[in-house]
Design a protein around this nucleic acid. Structure first.
Lengths: 336, 336
DNA sequence: CGGCGTATTGGAAGCGCTCTCATCCTATTG
DNA sequence: CAATAGGATGAGAGCGCTTCCAATACGCCG
């Protein structure tokens, strides 16, 4: 159990270097390789990870940083899916994942991560426009991939979806089915997603030459803010509501119903994310699907590229979104 | 940046050993310590984690293994909360967390974990009665803490709640409010939670001398299985339903409503978990609260104890649950 | 004033592995 | 048959740190 390469070498009658080559796939004569492999299996030998890391300079471990409000982590499947996607891609390359959540301040977390010097690289979720943790990682020498935020300076590697385009598309869809007083309940202000979706909404409204005036209310990505926002928009005479995400849309749906109005007949409703429940709402919700799991996988792969070809400059990946049209925005025809 | 202890030693005019002592809190004269600390901060020195691990035999990293169906991971906040709790407790001791999800087979995952020899210990979720991954970890020399399962042989350390007692309590509550045809929709058979809750239900029914006959139907912890199960139980003339968890209860609620029956008037309903939405259902759901986050913290702390006092034998922690009575099981009085 | 205990410090031996270089051996070619 | 190329292997120098042990210096007691 507590055996070393030297023990193995002695057992198989070759040098330590040769055993190491067998383990790491170096050039070894076929006969020797088989003999050593046999001993390897027989003894159940496991190399010492710390020693290999020290000697080789690579650890096979990457960090994943999700420094977010615990509340969000609990209730939004987004993060589980992202994690799952990363985990999938990492395990393909037998890479382990070290996870940091938001238990500490961003400064402390940054310190911990940098102190844990054995990471080969790090993936960090970046939702806010300003983020010292993200800045710190980017500044450090640690290869870093951002998820969810394109930095303006274009010097960072990232994986993201085009929130502006997607929001534009869904707003345009509302215009296309004949709505004129289209309101928007934003996501949490200060996050990239909320600001970009708002920008997309505004762009589409402007192109359609529709008034925006009091038709934008702030939400926070949660259900209650959707209900409150919807009530406010109804007071403004809205005939359509584009909510910052699906949870917000769900809240809005309840509020609209509470007023005795029908969706989509009186008010059309759209969300963002296409979470599982969106299709099961009554009526099923029109929304934007973003492959969250795929974002996670892509982030991991991008990091691998960074590690394999350093000096290649930043890599940027924009994943496509898909407009999912359901009954909640059914056009002239009344849907069920 | 790429500096070593020797560089630091040279800079501060002491030996490498002394610098090491300063970093690790060894005995050093106060003046020397201050001088070295100053250099340390000034240079932004970070020790090489691999080297310290190799030399000291401890890594400050523990593994967390949640080998579960991705579907569950996404939709059940249980896992996020557990993770959060562990992360909280680990970060208190500046310990990092390496995470494994269920991307691979249990055998492969086990191999990866054992191969990643730098872990100080591991926490593993154990929900199934039989689990090769759990067995493998327990057999290995890696200090291991189980979450959610008391092994019969009592040789393992674990953190768990008493599902049997809790299920007994909630069933007895249904008896106490005068119900006689009390049905149970189980969780996923083969999991400890489902079997234990079933056992608790049966125990309470037996003590109350109530018939069970066709009143147990199998579910799988998901909403649809709750709906299906409820319909079946209604056919059996059930006047109360104890669902395997809150999601199942939610499904049951919809099905009962669909039949034109009222909760709790016609059918009383109870769940398990007390997830956030349970209190927001209409009517609010009677359920069992288990401190999931606390379970996570407790698991991490148990592992710390194991690491600090090896040879102390297994540690077992049973956390309390709390019966949360709401309108869905309101007694004689009809609730809203 | 000599001796001894104690607080500090330095020296140096690893921890177990990777990887470059040098060596050796066999096969090939003219 | 000699010369040489090339593949397989071994030797050994680290990687950067912890930690045991010895050495030193200082203060105090008798």
């Amino acid at each position: 159990m507590a055996q070393t390469l030297d023990d193995l070498a002695a057992l198989s009658g070759v040098s330590r270097a040769t055993v190491s080559r067998v383990i790491n796939g170096g050039p070894v004569a076929e006969g020797t390789r088989r003999r050593v492999l046999d001993i390897l299996h027989r003894t159940g030998y496991r190399p010492n990870a710390a020693a290999r890391t020290l000697a080789s300079g690579r650890s096979g471990v990457v960090g994943v940083v999700m420094h977010i409000d615990p509340h969000l982590l609990f209730q939004d499947p987004y993060f589980s899916q992202l994690l799952q996607g990363m985990s999938d891609a990492l395990s393909e390359r037998a890479t382990a994942m070290m996870l940091w959540l938001g238990n500490r301040s961003k400064e402390e977390t940054l310190d911990h991560i940098l102190w844990m010097s054995l990471l080969d690289g790090v993936i960090v979720t970046a939702y806010r426009l300003e983020d010292p943790l993200v800045d710190g990682l980017l500044t450090s020498s640690l290869p870093t991939v951002l998820v969810g935020h394109r930095r303006a300076d274009r010097s960072a590697s990232y994986v993201d979806v085009d929130n502006v385009d997607a929001a534009d598309a869904i707003t345009s869809h509302l215009v296309a089915i004949g709505r004129r007083r289209i309101g928007h309940i934003t996501g949490l202000r200060g996050t990239v997603a909320a600001e970009d979706r708002l920008a997309g909404y505004l762009r589409a409204m402007k192109r359609a030459a529709l008034p925006v005036d009091e038709l934008v209310v702030d939400g926070d990505f949660n259900q209650p803010s959707g209900a409150a926002g919807a009530l406010s928009l109804l007071d403004q005479g809205a005939d359509a509501v584009f909510a910052g995400n699906d949870a917000t849309a769900q809240g809005a749906l309840e509020a609209i119903r509470g007023r005795g109005l029908r969706v989509p007949d009186d008010v059309a409703l759209a969300g963002f994310d296409d979470l599982e429940f969106a299709a099961r709402l009554d009526p099923p919700l029109t929304t934007v699907r973003q492959g969250v799991r795929q974002q996670g996988m892509e982030a991991a792969r991008t990091l691998f590229q960074l590690l394999e070809e350093p000096g290649e400059g930043p890599r940027r990946v924009i994943l496509p979104t898909e407009l999912v049209i359901r009954q909640s925005t059914a056009g002239g025809v009344v849907g069920g």
